[in-house]
Design a protein around this nucleic acid. Sequence first.
RNA 1: CGGGGCGUAGCGCAGCCUGGUAGCGCGCGUGCCUUGGGCGCACGAGGUCGCGAGUUCGAAUCUCGCCGCCCCGACCA
Length: 572
Amino acid sequence: MRVSRLFLSTLKEAPAEAELVSHRLMLRAGLIRRLASGLYTWLPLGLRVVRKVEAVVRREMNATGAVEVLMPAIQPAELWQESGRWDHYGPDLLRVKDRHDRDFCVGPTHEEVIGDLVRREVKSYRQLPVTLYQIQTKFRDEIRPRFGVMRAREFLMKDAYSFHADKAGLDVTYQAMYEAYSRIFASLGLRFRAVAADTGAIGGTGSHEFHVLADSGEDAIAYCPQSAFAANVELAEALAPSGRRPDASETMRKVETPGKKTCEAVCEQLGCDIRKSIKAVMVHASGKLHMLLLRGDHSLNEIKAAKLPGMERLRLASAEEIKEATGCAPGFIGPVGLSSAVSIIADRSAAALADFVCGANEADYHLAGVNFGRDLPEPAIVADIRNVVSGDPSPDGAGTLELCRGIEVGHIFQLRKKYSDAMNIAFLDEGGKLQTVEMGCYGIGVTRIVAAAIEQNHDARGIIFPAALAPFQVAIVPIGANKSDEVRSVAEQLYQDLNDAGVEVLLDDRDERPGVMFADMDLIGIPYRIVVGERGLKNGELEFKQRREEKAANVRLEQIVEHVCSRLQAEA
RNA sequence: CGGGGCGUAGCGCAGCCUGGUAGCGCGCGUGCCUUGGGCGCACGAGGUCGCGAGUUCGAAUCUCGCCGCCCCGACCA
């Protein structure tokens, strides 16, 4: 490809809307352009990168025995009503009506459609197991699209669905997918981690997420360097502190703490360890208020709390609700002397405290030396409702946890029979008995991977594409082509030779100054650059430089094609 | 939806407080010059100042409403 025909459009300055490095670079390098909130056009250069991701995904999916299909992006409402998700999916589901006033949606995922297909086609256990996948445009009407294609509303996703006669069959494919995903992200040159995950809206039981590690990631991951344990913080279990609770040694006393609304501030004033304070979080669930108790240095994990009986759809209580229940404003509330209308749920770590500090349910006052069983009843419910922190013991009993951040690029689920029961996806087993299928689903955010890869691979000059993702493998930059016939003809010949050798090569044939060409080729992240200039040609040499390196190497003109090919092969 | 901020040339911004002529840098066009890291000089094109009302002799500037976008919280590939 010649730059003059590529429709390449780079920017010196990034549009103000872009916050994240990858977003800025994708705009500056001319990979994408924004059409509307959460909607992006892929320019030719960017589309080539997307195709690279797709190619790796297809190769590995096919290798597992999965077969590709393509389902409609628009789906009839009836299927979603049948699965129950028409009412439960919420506003992320973009609903549309056709000219006959019939309801449809723009697919955010395809369990219903694939389920409908399979129940029509699969009649016998002899047809199982089967795994179908597609690479399709999805639409989720995100509350807040952001970070360019990282969290877009419309995006490209590889989604696969497997169907099995029994759980053992599902386990086999789930494991195969886990391994295929690991190969995909490794092939793409990404530093990633597979973690145990919450199943969210898709539903089901077993689940793993694949995260590209990046400080800008939206997810927090807990992992144990001493073992294989890794889980999304949403899910990672905080173990109960070991040993039994110490005996009470202090008497409860009321202390004045004017304006101290946080555990940090209160403990600082009292000179006490924040790990001996209790923070009370008031939430509303199932029509009543609940006070959640956490150790002062811990934070509430709403997902864990919402899994407790009667706590579904919990939300933080409003200031008015808190005032009504405790007679005091947020910042000074606590579990002592609380109305019995409010149930108390204590985190394991909070429940293990003795002689602790907590709010007095009176503005500008806290209580110190408080003890369960003496100053207030033992908490009715003790559960794991906090986020793990660095240094917590690993749930698998080996070592301690560390935290890092990740970008979720893949997610695999064991759906079991959630959809097959709802939609009656059934087959006849060996005994002629009708059974519903076991089902798994497996997603990869194709377009998100492009952003994640850039997030992980860039420098001050721009993108540094991993080999497998690069839109071109080599860029040829001729210097002074307009005044040197030799430079021009050597560059053209090299362009042709590399193309003939099967190398994806980009020739910068623009009549630009060297600095412009260098800057653009660096910005768009082509892994290798060959400079053709009179300076080198005098000695029969060309310059060959890797994007990550500062220095270029001189290579004999007659050896350059072979040199390039061997370097590319060494990487593959 | 709640909280914060922004909308002025393709991009990045100034002007707005204290109403009166719309400006800078980059990019774009033409010419000259230059040619190994976003070169220099000259000339030039390009703007319903987000939209709609209102106040005023006069509104980019003040007021109100609407729209769009960005950032922080609940969603997720």
